[in-house]
Design a binder for these strands. Structure first.
Lengths: 338, 338
DNA sequence: CGTCAGTTTCGAACCGGTTCGACGATGACC
DNA sequence: GGTCATCGTCGAACCGGTTCGAAACTGACG
């Protein structure tokens, strides 16, 4: 391993001079700079990250905490991982990925030992035990997802309530007056996935305002329960003219289910949903939908975290940022003549 | 941030004594040890990882390199991430996850700067440009997947050839003499996914040995192409009595496809496949299959890497380890009377 | 009582960077 | 020609741990 001392010796300068060439924090004559840069190239020198972290008190690493739920559709988590990682790299940070089942303990460990400059919490629940841990280590953090208590913390999430209103409005605009809503499985609610009720409550409220009938259900996450549950919902409300699907497993299975019933979209049934672009492409889903925008969320989260780390004034006050949902019309809603 | 010096002062000892209590590398009297441990608890001291890395030349971090292929079924990658991460943690290591599109450059970066003690390469291709990079930084590495050149490198993968033979044999034992094979999409071959042809070539060879007719095809990765391709294969070979599916998108879609054609498994068609346990559960797949054992591969890879890092004699000579495939019989193969 | 071995603790050096104050050289100005 | 900035570079201190050699103390033994 070649060190900065080796480079200095080879270039005939002091170690500090090499360091200044590296950082550009002081002016160095073109001549010596050339000599040093040549030495660096010849020796293949790369600064030691540990030493630099020790000296600067910055590791240029962000912690990313995931938790895997056996019951959840796996790609859902992955949607965030890639954008977070890519955004971090673009800002010069690497990602320490932590999947420890005890997330709170993991935060204390990587925080207290100064392995990371900041922490991204994925898949945050309503009462997330990791929050207290994050507050106790005095390191900047950012949440993707909305917990109950957001005091003094940066959090970012899709505005699920607004997403629900956008979808209900769209159906109402097209003349629909009786619709069925399929939410994620109920155990996601029990686990504290607040996006479930934020979407559901808002949909119910908006339908009520508009004088629509809305039948809310919790769906399933796996075949064959997914299929049978959808069939049941459709059987129970034959007069419903549209389906709002907020459930990945359900929407992925829906094309086949509807074909089985001989239903054509939007002729016999209108469908709107909420899913990510990648997910939709993976399954070639042909439905009008709000994008869950994992990409945007991940990138914005990292951006905000880095601003917070660098004490940028643009970071502003810590708080919640809700991302405005965007509707993509794929023609799966029929206009009903009245 | 409290340091080892703070602890030492509070306990009335020198810094080195605290360090020895932490590491246990020298005997410290019970009395002072108690005093020091108390001080550590009172101050909430955790050693600074950067400083420790600098002093010991060990970071206790492993690099994990992923590459995402837009065309590949996302969970496939995730299957490995979790076991790798979990196994590492159990051995005291954290994971630096790198998703840089230029993997070779990323390896040089994290290797040369001594951010990691070793490197796990996921989804290795036949001519993987990251290999040269891995060899150039002198850091232990382990591959999950099989490249063309495995000199002096630890690599681990499922024995796909053997898996193919196990499945062909199973069909042959049940009296099948004409079968169709659906491999992953052809562009996976072009990308250098050697598991495709290791499986395919072995299946063809074995069928030949056994005097069976085998029709090999490359499948698709997305709806609706997946569906139409399977329909075509079935139409072309109406006399084939069994399907060997080595293609995640196809096997996930198969239940619905067969239902559409009014085919019942195994009455009208026998099906064997190769997929991971998690994947099978996610889609409730009812087929006799070889497990792709991502869990085993991930754990063994990390184990081997850590042995290599610690220069354990049990690491043995660097080389390829192929994991024996395990067949799980789910009754999707019909016994044909002759 | 002096020597020796064993135990426990300390001090200093070291890991590889960064950063601050200072110093010598150079050129501008009066 | 002396003074004063400015520029470029150096040396030393520091970040927070680990580790080695040695010192201090204890008790056993001749």
């Amino acid at each position: 391993m070649t060190t900065i001392g080796d480079v200095a010796r080879r270039a005939g300068v002091s170690r500090s001079t090499v360091s200044y060439v590296l950082s550009g924090k002081r002016t160095i004559s073109q001549e010596t700079r050339d000599r040093i840069e040549l030495a660096i190239r010849e020796l293949g020198f790369t600064p030691n990250a540990g030493a630099r972290a020790l000296a600067t008190a910055q590791t240029m690493v962000l912690g990313m905490l995931l938790q895997f739920h056996a019951d959840e559709f796996a790609p859902a988590m992955l949607q965030y991982v890639l954008p977070v990682s890519a955004a971090a790299r673009e800002l010069g940070y690497d990602i320490l990925m932590v999947t420890d089942p005890d997330g709170a303990a993991a935060i204390r460990r990587i925080g207290a030992s100064a392995m990371v400059d900041g922490i991204v919490l994925l898949d945050v629940t309503h009462q997330d035990p990791r929050l207290e841990s994050l507050r106790s280590v005095s390191k900047p953090g950012v949440l993707i997802g909305l917990p109950a208590d957001t005091r003094d913390i940066d959090a970012i999430d899709l505005d699920f309530a607004q997403a629900a209103r956008v979808l209900v409005d769209d159906l109402h605009d097209h003349g629909h007056r009786e619709v069925t809503l399929i939410s994620p499985p109920y155990h996601v609610v029990e686990r504290g996935g607040s996006y479930v009720w934020r979407f559901r409550d808002a949909a119910i409220a908006r339908a009520d305002e508009l004088g629509m009938r809305l039948h809310p259900y919790y769906g399933e996450s796996r075949p064959p329960a997914v299929q049978t549950s959808v069939h049941r919902f459709l059987d129970v409300h034959p007069s419903a003219t549209a389906l709002i699907v907020h459930n990945d497993a359900t929407i992925a299975a829906l094309p086949a289910i509807l074909r089985d019933r001989g239903l054509s979209v939007p002729r016999d049934l209108s469908v709107v949903s909420l899913y990510s672009r990648d997910f939709g492409e993976e399954f070639s889903l042909p439905y009008t939908a709000v994008e869950s925008a994992a990409d945007t969320l991940g990138r914005q989260a990292v951006g905000q975290l880095v601003r917070r780390i660098s004490r940028s004034p643009q970071a502003g006050q810590p708080g919640v940022r809700l991302v405005e949902p965007v509707l993509t019309d794929r023609g799966s809603v029929r206009s009903l003549s009245r």
